[in-house]
Amino acid sequence: MRDVSAGSDLPRSRRPSWVEKRLTGWALWHSQCLVSTLGQLANTPLNTLMIAAVIGIALALPAGLFVLLDNVQGLSRSWESAAQISVFLKPEVSDAAAAKLAKALHARPDLAQVRVITRKQAFQEYRQLSGFKDALAVLGDENPLPAVLVLQLAQGQTAAGIEHLLAALRQQPQVEIAQFDLDWMRRLHAITEVIRRGVTIIGVLLGVGVLLIVGNTIRASVEKRREEIEVAKLLGATNAFIRRPFLYTGLWYGLLGGIVAWLFVAITLGLLQAPVRQLAALYRSDFSLSIMSADTLFTIWIVGAFLGVTGSWLAVGRHLAAIEPS
């Protein structure tokens, strides 16, 4: 900005040197502003906390849902990697033929492991676990159960790859049924994608909400400090000078809201931890909710700060122009 006094006979107002202005003036004033706005917020703790809480809830809802979604997807991934294909062979296939087939399948790159359950093993296992021991005794040595191959999939199999493998297995003449419940996994994926989209939309809406909340709060404080703004303008304050404390206030709201959001999500996850573990135990899983990552925390903060500054920028920009000294 050009100094007015250049070329005029008004005495120059003190203009600090470029470096001095950049370093001392700018940095000093900004850090002062940062501290003083925080001080102002601390002077009205209840008001500040309420706004931070509102922003925090608005941020916590999508953040928490995203964390839960990540958990669900992580869980389904872990199931997927542990996924097995059960291949029931035709009853007339002997154990030796089954072993031979298993050996052939083991060579395939998309299979990590092939386990053979012989007809005899299957019968014994069934007798032990089914509770039909006595009924089965009637059958004598007649074994109605076929041999079964349990195929462990190699890591990183796509749904299409698994489908392809299943088709190949069904082609084998010894195979009666090759069974892999892919559909429920696909459904889970589809559902999580729908939910993810929904959470994103909710997140955007709540983000707009945060903008409006911060904007409205800042607008009120601009209005409250109208006299101060007018006086500052009369004394030669630029719009940037007047805007600055409000932007910092918005920044603080955003950061405080981020902390509140983090607390909400952390507490919620903590409360869900025990029941989820119980649920997982019912499924013989040692799954537990993963807590928020540093990335997520950082993202919440950045988003909060961005929304805070943007909200106040929008509000101040609109209202500052309207306040002219009278």
Binding site: M1, V4, L10, L235
Partner: peptide
């Protein structure tokens, strides 16, 4: 308009 603040710094009110 942008120069007004700097101009006002020369004027005491």
């Amino acid at each position: 308009k942008r120069r007004i603040p700097y101009f006002r710094r020369h004027i005491g009110m």
